[in-house]
């Protein structure tokens, strides 16, 4: 069984796959993280069974999937907030406004020092680390902060792997970047998460602020996209079901906010329906 897609979902997928292996034994689940875009592409090419996603499928991607006759079902599994991080010894900045983030990250931005971002800060260069253009987190962040998906300055260090971003920011004085909260949580000793002022005051990212809506513009739902054809194999359905059932417990442990109970019930219903559709299709 092959699962590919969002790097932001990876810590959750890993936790679920470990629990699944413990419960059901032997079931080999191969986890990759080519980015949400790459995950969708491979799902629609029939290369993988499940795509994990940190943003919804775009109209273009949906059309491509349809063209290739790959039907799929999207199951929400958790909530995550994009987290802005800085070097751990940067104590001068605690909170950034959305406007400041926009000026910093807009295409062609010439903000190259902290002072240019906010007068009074030192004139140290801001070294930027962020996900590459195949990333759902990149698409989401640019849409929310800059206003258009994929609209971003280009002179930052892109990486498909959030761990690399964490390493870059942690190891470079005066650096900053953004990533999924779970990756921040796994490296919290080496990084400093910044609060974000979305208009109603500075809010720190945390599963609690993701759940109660106070961090809302930077919070997104994470999904599993399961190929309907793959559901004919009972193992795939079992894993997807297990993912949905285990998320309320594992998501908070891995650094996410769980969804409401009702939303998991709905995910279960969607999966059951898709499984029936797959069986109908095969008989």
């Amino acid at each position: 069984m092959v699962v590919d897609g969002s790097n932001s979902v990876l810590p959750l997928s890993e936790a679920v796959a470990a629990a699944f292996a413990e419960r059901h034994g032997g079931g080999r689940v191969a986890l990759r993280s080519s980015g949400t875009g790459g995950g969708f592409r491979r799902l629609c090419d029939g290369e993988t069974d499940i795509a994990t996603a940190s943003r919804p499928m775009s109209a273009r991607e949906r059309a491509r999937c349809r063209e290739r006759g790959v039907r799929h079902v999207a199951l929400p599994v958790a909530r995550d907030g994009v987290t802005v991080v800085a070097h751990s010894r940067n104590a001068l900045v605690a909170c950034l406004g959305l406007g400041e983030l926009r000026r910093l990250w807009a295409p062609g931005s010439e903000v190259s020092t902290w002072r240019a971002l906010r007068p009074g800060l030192p004139a140290q260069a801001v070294r930027l680390y962020a996900p590459g253009s195949d990333s759902g987190t990149f698409d989401f962040f640019t849409r929310v902060v800059v206003g258009r998906a994929k609209a971003s300055r280009a002179d930052y260090d892109p990486s498909a792997d959030h761990e690399t971003i964490a390493r870059g920011v942690a190891g470079t004085p005066w650096a900053m970047g953004y990533m999924g909260y779970a990756h921040y949580a796994a490296n919290r000793h080496a990084l400093r998460a910044l609060q974000v002022d979305t208009g109603a005051g500075c809010v720190a990212p945390s599963p609690k602020s993701f759940a109660d809506g106070s961090y809302s513009p930077l919070v997104r739902e994470l999904h599993l996209y399961v190929a309907e054809d793959a559901l004919r194999r009972p193992a795939v359905g079992r894993f997807a079901g297990f993912f949905v059932d285990a998320s309320p417990r594992l998501a908070p442990e891995a650094g996410y906010a769980a969804l409401s109970a009702a939303q998991y019930v709905r995910s279960r219903a969607l999966l059951a329906e898709a499984t029936r559709a797959a069986e109908r299709g095969s008989s």
């Binding site: 080519s34 980015g35 790459g38 592409r41 590459g132 253009s133 195949d134």
Partner: peptide, 9 residues
């Protein structure tokens, strides 16, 4: 290498 890691079309 880094671009190809991100599974390019």
């Amino acid at each position: 290498a880094q671009t190809s890691l991100g599974d390019i079309a």
